[in-house]
Simulated scan of single mutants.
Amino acid sequence: MKNILLDKVKILEPLNPNRATAVFGGKSSGILNWNDIEYPHWYKTYKRLLANYWQSDEVNMSSDVKQFHLLSEKERESYLKIISLLATLDSSQTRAILLTSLYATDPSVQSILAVIAQQEAVHNESYSYILSSVVSLDEQNQAFEIGRTDELLLKRNQEIMEVYNQFVEKPSIENILKTLIYSTLLEGLFFYSGFAFFYNLARQNKMVGTSTMISYINRDELEHGRFISELIRATLAENPEYNTLDLTNWIYLQFEKSVDNEIEWSRYVLHDVEGIDLDEMAGYIRYRANKMLRMIGLSERYPKDVENPMKWIRAYADNFDDTKTDFFEQKSRSYTKVSDLNGFDDL
């Protein structure tokens, strides 16, 4: 099968129909009419994404400022390394999503990806905000260097960077599909040992501001993963020649590699953290992989890990399989915006 390179979509082509003929590689005028799109339920996706709007400096970090230096040395080390990982991933994801949008023929997809990219940029900014709240500028800069100097972190990110950069060099349907697959891994798997660390601190009443911020990021990532998995399935339905056994085997291999790398990373960054059972964490990572495989229409790879072994995490993280409830109703902690009255001037 010839891997034909795609051109970036032109801004306006009035001779083409408003309703796109394909998600990628089709024709469209570029005029978006939400009442005339190929996948009408994506308007609800767009509205859910907009409803998630938040800003990092609305989260009260005053208690975290006081608590950070009371954490154990191991907790502080893990905190900084995990923030560095999250910042590294969301920095790349902002650009990857924007690049994908440039090749999306369907203007509804372009709009949704634009919102997702904006949210990834907010996530990335939030990590800077978190660190600026708890450590000095020199320590902030050192933490962000970890993302490009820590050998294990570089190893675990190698595959995703290769796939993303291959898409930059050769923008084809195949490489878009592979980029979208790694986007589901990033959104639905790569963050989760890090999220678990912050939620574990919160259940010990430590760094609750940070974990609140992570909860908002987590909520966004769940919505991103949901849409990207639908985009993969739509793209394969429109391009059945790419829906091959080779691609399926490639996907399973990437999931297996990613699970192994994530487990190795979790054992490296979470060992000796009070309240985290590393075997449970490994099971949770495999459980997350099963969920993401189901989302893109494939069978589970880890039959012994179909149940969540870390049920306590459900108090902090939304769930794909449940009916999606209002975020603020299901949280035990309230969303407290910072004002002059509740601690912003203390930062």
Rank of each mutant, 00 (worst) to 15 (best):
I232R: 05
Y302E: 07
R301H: 04
I232E: 05
N218P: 00
Q254V: 08
Y284K: 11
S229E: 07
E241Q: 12
D272S: 10
N243Y: 13
Y242M: 09
V273A: 01
L236D: 03
N261T: 13
D220L: 02
E238A: 00
G275D: 09
E230D: 12
A234H: 09
D272A: 09
Y252E: 14
W250C: 01
S266C: 11
E230C: 01
S229T: 14
W250I: 00
E300R: 09
R286G: 09
W250Q: 06
L270H: 09
Q254N: 13
L293K: 07
I251W: 02
S266R: 04
Y302K: 04
R267N: 15
I296L: 09
S258A: 14
Y287R: 00
R301I: 13
I276H: 10
E280D: 14
N290W: 00
Y284I: 03
I263L: 10
W250L: 03
E264C: 08
Y302R: 03
H224G: 05
N243R: 06
D272T: 08
I228L: 10
P240C: 00
Y284G: 07
I228C: 01
R288V: 03
F255V: 14
L236G: 05
G283E: 06
F227A: 03
K291T: 13
M292R: 15
H271G: 02
M292W: 03
I217N: 02
D279E: 15
I228G: 02
H224V: 03
Y242Q: 10
V259F: 01
Y252H: 13
Y252C: 09
L247T: 08
D260I: 11
G275S: 06
I276M: 02
Y268L: 11
N290T: 01
P303Q: 08
A282C: 11
A282Q: 07
I217T: 04
Q254K: 14
D272C: 02
D260L: 10
L247M: 11
H271F: 13
S258V: 04
Y252F: 13
D272M: 02
Y287P: 00
L298K: 11
D277I: 10
R233H: 06
P240Q: 05
E241W: 02
R286K: 15
W250T: 04
R219K: 08
I251H: 01
Y268C: 12
E264Y: 03
E241D: 12
M295G: 15
L253A: 15
E230W: 06
R301F: 03
V269R: 00
I251K: 01
S299D: 15
L298F: 12
I296T: 03
N243E: 12
K291W: 02
S229R: 04
L293A: 10
Q254Y: 02
V259S: 07
Y252M: 09
Y302I: 07
P240H: 03
T248P: 01
G225N: 15
S229I: 07
R267T: 07
E223C: 06
V273P: 00
T244M: 05
E300V: 14
I276E: 05
Y242W: 13
D279Y: 13
L236S: 07
G283A: 09
S258R: 11
D279I: 11
R294I: 08
E238P: 00
P240L: 03
F227N: 04
I217Y: 00
Y242D: 01
K291M: 10
N243K: 11
L231G: 05
